[in-house]
Amino acid sequence: MEWIQQLVNGISLGSIYALIALGYTMVYGIIKLINFAHGDVFMLGAFIGFYAIARWEIGFFPALIIAMALCAIIGVVIERVAYKRLRNATRIAALITAIGVSLLIENVVIYFRGASPEAYPEVLPETSINILGVNISSISILILAVTIVLMILLQFIVHKTKIGKAMRAVSLDPDAARLMGINVDNTISATFAIGSALAGAAGVIFGVYYTRIEPLMGVLPGLKAFIAAVFGGIGSIPGAMVGGLSLGVVETVVSALGFSLWRDAAAFVILILILILKPSGIFGKNTREKV
């Protein structure tokens, strides 16, 4: 029974990673930039949701939508102000800017409200469902459901809509896409909007599930989500999903074996192994990097 319980634990942890990784993988897929600030948009989403629920006393779903909308705007602003100028700059310059944006968001939040943690109010009735001695929290089922729905929605957007087609074109070759009459700037902004909205949603759900939110909460989940995205194959939406769930399960197994202190190390070891052995990830296409 213990191991089934552990699997359930791993999947609920993994679906949070997957949710963040979905946005990560989209942004990376289109502009090839590790958006360090993604984890911080996730944090902002959590705080927006918190203030919406605790201060303005609105329900969970309206708060989720507000957080997603505001995060989408924030994501577009970040892209327009900081990243847009850097499209033709070196990778290093872009990455340093991303780190700078990430530090800026964290410290501005700390400046305005301090670094102390905040506890999410209980918005969803949380019950533990006991099936044959395995406890499953109702919220973790919700998270998994939301993640799967969003994944399907994303798959639909990317593969069946016009904007999705534009996204795929830009990610393949921005210059050729521009020649074909695609508005590259708007497409990239749209990608950021969607990715950041997902991060915002993940933030609210994280807050509801784990209760504790704080200004630096996005750093580690952000990195883990990136690992998940790499694991699944950067740019691949089902890959991000599978990568996130696998990472959650792996971490849980490491803890369950009694090595809980090595959990974060395990995630990074996975990252390094994947990068060295199969940089394209599970679902990634084998493309040789252009230089």
């Binding site: 700059a89 310059a93 800017t97 700078g100």
Partner: peptide, 8 residues
């Protein structure tokens, strides 16, 4: 962080 961004 502002310096970092602006310099870049």
């Amino acid at each position: 962080s502002l310096v970092l961004i602006i310099v870049m």
